[in-house]
């Protein structure tokens, strides 16, 4: 058992280092040019958003349409701080403050609304996120209203993005494999049974919501410090939908699914950019087709793991045996 845990950790570390090294090399040889680096940043931010929403919707079973709201809190908090303290410590402080602010609001909003179920919760979170957006729109003297904040110092380079993305994935995947994480999953499975088995469902819903909001806040902070500009429009209803699409495409309850979907979507969108006028039409058709033919998403609720490789190996062996 212990060996397994340790080897798991080793595999994770090795794959992380490999991913980092490969992309670093690609950047070094300019195969990933400046334009593609923007795609890379988008992919990283989308991974953070999708994995954190997956914790709320995929694992805890709470349908949220308000992720963009939490993201915007992180973005504005970090932007306002880095605009005043344009240094690396200021950036780190900004990301942290953005995440904490988002988590606080997430917890506060979660407490009353998480009593709602299913679509009602989705609509309430959507409304909450719209309210956040409207507040940012109207706090003219702080957020500069509809015109948005410009010239936010660009601190979030690829290395920072990688650290935050890897950190998010590790922490959330660790969490769902802990007793606390299982408590969240049991709520998705059957809330009444979970309560009867001693799981405080309200507490664990709020925890999932708060953690999810925390990382959405990080994603927002990274967005602000990557693209130098934010306005309330960016964090509208369609942003929440975008994140939900990634989560469902990857598979509810599959972290590797969220990552794969975020990467695929990033690559596909970049590729479709050359068909600018029909880009969104192709995207929507793709979405409909995938949902019709694979409604459980790419991964279902499974994770990519070594056991899949060993299964593949086995089936290969057994085929060989027959021949």
């Amino acid at each position: 058992m212990k060996k397994l845990v340790r080897s798991n950790l080793a595999i994770k570390l090795v794959s992380l280092i490999l991913t980092f090294a490969i992309i670093q090399l690609l950047i070094y040889f300019d195969i990933i040019n400046d334009y593609l680096q923007a795609t890379l940043a988008t992919i990283c931010i989308n991974i953070i958003l999708a994995v954190s929403l997956n914790l709320i919707t995929g694992f805890t079973g709470q349908f949220s349409l308000g992720h963009a709201g939490f993201m915007s809190i992180g973005a504005y908090a970090c932007a306002l701080i880095t605009l005043r303290i344009p240094t690396i410590p200021g950036f780190i402080l900004g990301v942290f403050a953005g995440a904490v602010a988002a988590a606080l609001i997430g917890g506060l909003v979660g407490l009353p609304t998480l009593r709602l179920r299913g679509d009602y919760l989705a609509i309430a979170t959507l409304g909450m996120s719209e309210i956040i957006r409207i507040v940012f729109l109207n706090l003219d003297n702080i957020t500069n209203g509809a015109a948005g904040l410009q010239d936010i110092p660009q601190f979030a380079n690829w290395k920072w993005l990688f650290i935050y993305t890897a950190g998010t994935v590790l922490i959330i995947s660790n969490y769902i494999r802990s007793s606390h994480g299982r408590a969240c999953i049991s709520i998705r499975e059957d809330e009444i049974a979970a309560e009867a088995m001693g799981i405080n469902s309200t507490k664990y819903k709020v925890i999932a919501f708060t953690i999810g909001a925390f990382f959405a806040g990080i994603a927002g902070a990274l967005y602000a410090t990557t693209f130098n500009f934010i306005d309330p429009k960016i964090f509208g209803f369609s942003k929440s939908i975008d994140v939900l699409v990634i989560v469902v495409l990857g598979g509810l309850g599959s972290i590797s699914g969220s990552i794969i979907a975020a990467v695929l979507l990033g690559v596909v969108t970049t590729y479709l950019q050359s068909f600018a006028n029909i880009q969104m039409i192709l995207y929507s058709v793709l979405l409909i087709i995938i949902m019709i033919f694979r409604p459980q998403g790419l991964m279902g609720s499974k994770e990519v793991s070594l056991s899949i490789f060993s299964k593949l190996g086995n089936s290969f062996k057994s085929k060989k045996g027959r021949v």
Binding site: V248, M280, I281, S284, L287, M291
Partner: peptide, 20 residues
């Protein structure tokens, strides 16, 4: 299918109509 899959399809249809 699950309701969330239909919901995503609806979003797809919505985008399709808008951009067509």
């Amino acid at each position: 299918a699950t309701r969330i899959a239909v919901l995503i399809t609806a979003i797809g249809v919505s985008l399709f109509l808008e951009y067509v």
